[in-house]
Simulated scan of single mutants.
Amino acid sequence: MTRPVRIGVQLQPQHAEYTEIRRAVAEIEEAGADIVYTWDHFFPLYGEADGLHFECWTMLGAWAEATSRIEIGALVTANSYRNPELVADMARTVDHISDGRLILGIGAGWFERDYDEYGYEFGTAGSRIASLGESMPRIKSRWAKLNPAPTRDIPVLIGGSGERKTLRVVAEHATIWHGFGDPERLRHLTSVLDRWCAEVGRDPLEIERSVAVSDPPESVGEDFVATGVTHFTIAQGGPKYDLGLARDWIAWRDEHNAKSA
């Protein structure tokens, strides 16, 4: 199965007024990107540590109303911050508000300041990954009980590159896997994920492969595609969002998909 290339843009909700974030979301949709993501933190990760910042899921509800075509989601929701049944209900609700355009991006969590200041138990990397694995069946079980049900089988994006634990959770539960690194690193991680899929009885072709990119498409695009990656995300932070690189990737996507059709 050959997947078409898709382009996402992560608007990091830091150091920007919400009016600028809303403007950038509209520009991204107009430019033709496939997905617009936020992230799930409570403080900036870069720049002024106590700079402007906004919460993830309330913003996704606003994006669902403010857009009409583009898919939306978090890259990624921190599993530790909310009860999994609540995450399922929130995702189902935003799924309905958006008429079926939500991607549930989720990961184990890692930013210790979020945990400390909001009163969550930080634990260890291993305990957080184990908790993510325990949460996924609960989220899917709650979706089956909700009334009304989700509008579609909500895609699940799981982010992370841990070879012994995280990629097993990806193999078991993900629709999309978001990894990190250069093409050589992604080639290796893809082979690890394929082995986990074989172990858990999952067809690896069911999982879309995604990566964050900061280089121009002509320098890395085809090399990533050769590893099986077809989903590329460009991250941008405030106070002003420069979408020039994202537009370059969108143009490259269109050329690539036309040649592959």
Rank of each mutant, 00 (worst) to 15 (best):
R3I: 01
V5A: 14
P13R: 00
A16E: 03
Y18P: 15
I21A: 01
R23S: 08
E29S: 05
I35F: 08
W39N: 09
W39I: 10
H41Y: 06
P44C: 12
Y46R: 11
A49I: 09
F54S: 13
E55F: 04
W57F: 14
W63C: 07
A66M: 14
T67A: 07
T67D: 06
S68Q: 14
I72H: 07
I72P: 02
A74P: 15
V76E: 07
T77N: 12
L86Q: 11
A91L: 13
T93G: 06
E117C: 08
Y118N: 12
F122S: 04
G126Q: 10
S141P: 00
D153E: 15
I154R: 05
L157I: 02
I158G: 03
I158A: 03
S161E: 08
S161F: 08
K165T: 13
V169L: 03
D182A: 10
D182V: 07
L186P: 00
L193D: 03
L193T: 02
R195A: 15
E199V: 12
R209M: 02
V213Y: 04
P216H: 12
P217R: 10
S219N: 08
G221P: 03
G221V: 06
G221N: 07
D223E: 15
H231P: 01
F232A: 05
Q236P: 00
P239I: 10
P239K: 13
A246K: 04
W249G: 01
A251E: 15
D254L: 02
H256M: 11
N257Q: 12
